[in-house]
Design a protein around this nucleic acid. Sequence first.
DNA 1: CCTACCGATCGGTAGG
DNA 2: CCTACCGATCGGTAGG
Lengths: 222, 222
Amino acid sequence: MSKLENSRKQTKRQGERQETGETRRLILQAAQNLFMTYGYRAVTTRQIADACGITQAALYRHFTDKQDIYVSMLLETMIPSRSALERIAQRSAPLHERLRLAALHLLHTSQHNMDMMFHDVQHELKVEAQEKIQHAFEESVLHPLASIFEDGMRQGLLRPPEEAGITALTAAGLFLRLSSEFVSQNSYSSEPARTLAERAQLVAELTLYGCARYDAPDQHTQ
Amino acid sequence: MSKLENSRKQTKRQGERQETGETRRLILQAAQNLFMTYGYRAVTTRQIADACGITQAALYRHFTDKQDIYVSMLLETMIPSRSALERIAQRSAPLHERLRLAALHLLHTSQHNMDMMFHDVQHELKVEAQEKIQHAFEESVLHPLASIFEDGMRQGLLRPPEEAGITALTAAGLFLRLSSEFVSQNSYSSEPARTLAERAQLVAELTLYGCARYDAPDQHTQ
DNA sequence: CCTACCGATCGGTAGG
DNA sequence: CCTACCGATCGGTAGG
């Protein structure tokens, strides 16, 4: 006996199945795969429905419209990151180590194609939805990351903005860009294959120290 | 007497105006503004035509289809960069200075939304067009930049890949991402306003040295 | 949850 | 270079 059958004894008019929100989760999962790969506009509601084995019209029993699917998917992707990143930020480990763990988290949950996501949010969504996403992103991803960099500045390990440095928020944005450079195994180049852990380590190092040798002659005085 | 009238005495059947390729340039300029802002799919051929003051059907006298407009626009944007970047790469100035100039060039010509561009190329174009763009990008942008980093490795100023470093090509890709972080005045944060020159300087410094203080205690041994 | 369908809009073509 | 139009596809709804 399937668990689909035993978990409902109610009226059941023609072909309804909703109950547990199982279908909703299925839709959001398909939406994540498709939207994050092809972008908001390029994905049709029919593609999402096909990936779930339901008809396009059935989507509208779970979401009010296409935008609602997209926004719900983004929120359910970002919000769980908050506690994970805040926990990492509050560790007592050295700056470098916390950044490595944060990068690992980002690479692992594959906060994919951040740039495309923001483009879509900005250009395809209504203002109200934009603000909801923007807020969730700041609370769940940007601020936890920025707090790590603020810590580094308080400790005097990072250049403050007034010494040709950048603000903690900008550093966080930069860190995110660097991470997305390494989500997919390379963008253009023919880099040797690396594990997720190695890439996270690299993101942390590059963010802090760049590509220069630590012991290189000081080029600022050249 | 308008210059449109005097530059042609030929047959002139019903409403043709083509001659100098003037309209073609107008179309490419409108296409650049629109495609680079909204992405390939979001821009309609009617929008491009409207921006040029012609009808949508008239576009097809200058280009075979929408993709042709897009590819032509990208090629005519990237190819002129080649000589500029190669000249910068071959200068005798220090590594840091050449990177600063390269960043300035990129920020100035606003090789905008590189990530969206690559997404569009990969997902919306036919393979043949993809390869044409990929080739032009490598020749005109990526390789000139990579040659600067190769130089730095030869000089021993950069960590080589086998010392937890990255290849010159990856460094070039990273440099491009950092640049696009600063094309628009900030992405998320509330950074103080900076001139183009200041941002170029910052991109070069961050690429080489990261956000850490140059004189910070070595965190690798923490 | 499905079948059927709608208006709107898209890229591209016919014909002059 | 324009007017007019085409088939295809889109997001969303009616009705059960």
